[in-house]
Design a protein around this nucleic acid. Structure first.
Lengths: 214, 214
DNA sequence: GCGAATCTTACACTCGTTGCAAATTTAGCC
DNA sequence: GGCTAAATTTGCAACGAGTGTAAGATTCGC
């Protein structure tokens, strides 16, 4: 159902929310997250400070709002995969595709956005939490498909490793973004690294990888 | 060098820090982390509130103070391993040993302590950060041993997977502690799960593990 | 002792967050 | 259109974490 199908009250709520969020994002980019106060955002959006905190329970939510797509991405890829495809193959395919189209879900954000997160301990912590939620959702999806004979830890173990791979590559993309690399060069650099990481996930660390001590 | 070898000033600083930390820990256990205020801790320790925040920059540090041993544990196990032993083998051995002796570094804490963390979003976030720092330290240690021919992502990839395994098993121990299990039963339950997880790390997820979709 | 360095303290302040009740706006109905 | 009920916005007050500052107290090196 779209905006047209809701009443005036509900539609105004969406407007107000977007109004606040837009001003917040702009100020965060201009001044940084920690340097911007909620009172400042309220003034810019011409609403009461309490209205801001009514819509967004925590300040972090003003910057990292629509995380639903992010936290659900891995679980969805697993749940939606074709019959016979392994979870690893599905997640690998998903990541490669996301890199090709520079999907924000994979870590592609503007340099300003990446800078905003990197400069803020609060946002960095929140992002860590989102990675965790993503892993939990993945574990639940894997548990749905797990054979009854598998140990109970199996889906969580697979989720931990798969989510760790995605998180590492996400951070790598962020890192290159912060270094000023354009998206196409980032994609070119990360693609072979993704191949390496997912191959590693498939075949294991082995007994002497990355290296036995000389 | 021990306490006896330092001057009066330094020795009093240690006393004051321990005094504050002890009162804080006691109050956290009695009332919960979020329910205890810094002012309350200061009053209990008979010092100024500012003295508390001088010693402990953040409230979380009052509960999770000596994290050095934790964040360095994986990197140290890798750096100290015998010649010829793989990083995976060393970390596996390290974890098994930690479980056998119910080491807090592996996740063994009293039920009250586990409850304190689980009930506090602040402490949970801080613990997440400590897991992250531990992974970073491990990546640095692995990078020291990595052959020059390996891709730059290799040590970070191995660290991400190895740290994810340790984090998962840590959480599992916490979870069983919260469920009221005694340490010996936790160790008995986690040992085979550790075997499973580290085997998985060694051999990889494969192409149809944990399961291809039916 | 005595000056210098350091630690402790009190005070004031900013900011995120919450609770509450009044004022405003919208919804549903006559 | 007008009226009541519900929801939203607002202002105000308060709490708690964290910071800066300057004065007082303690310790150090000589």
């Amino acid at each position: 159902m779209g905006i047209e199908s809701m009443g005036l009250r509900e539609s105004k709520k969406h407007e107000t929310r977007k109004l606040i969020s837009d001003h917040a994002t702009r100020l965060f980019m201009e001044q940084g997250f920690e340097q911007t106060t909620i009172a400042e955002i309220a003034t810019a959006a011409r609403v009461a400070k309490k209205t801001v905190t009514n819509y967004f329970a925590r300040k972090e939510d003003l910057a990292l709002d629509h995380h639903e797509a992010f936290t659900a991405s891995l679980a969805r890829a697993v749940a939606d995969r074709a019959a016979g495809e392994s979870a690893l193959a599905a997640l690998r395919r998903e990541f490669v595709a996301a890199v090709e189209q520079c999907d924000p879900v994979a870590g592609f954000a503007g340099p300003e956005f990446a800078r905003m997160i990197a400069d803020s301990p609060t946002l960095t912590a929140r992002l860590r939490e989102l990675h965790d939620l993503r892993e939990e959702a993945l574990a639940a999806a894997l548990a749905d498909d797990a054979p009854a004979t598998a140990p109970v830890i199996a889906p969580r173990a697979a989720a931990a490793l798969l989510a760790a791979a995605h998180r590492l590559l996400f951070q790598r993309i962020q890192e290159l973004t912060l270094a000023g690399e354009p998206n196409d060069r980032i994609a070119a650099a990360v693609a072979p690294e993704a191949t390496y990481v997912f191959d590693l996930l498939g075949t294991g660390l082995g007994e002497d990888l990355p290296a036995a001590k000389a």
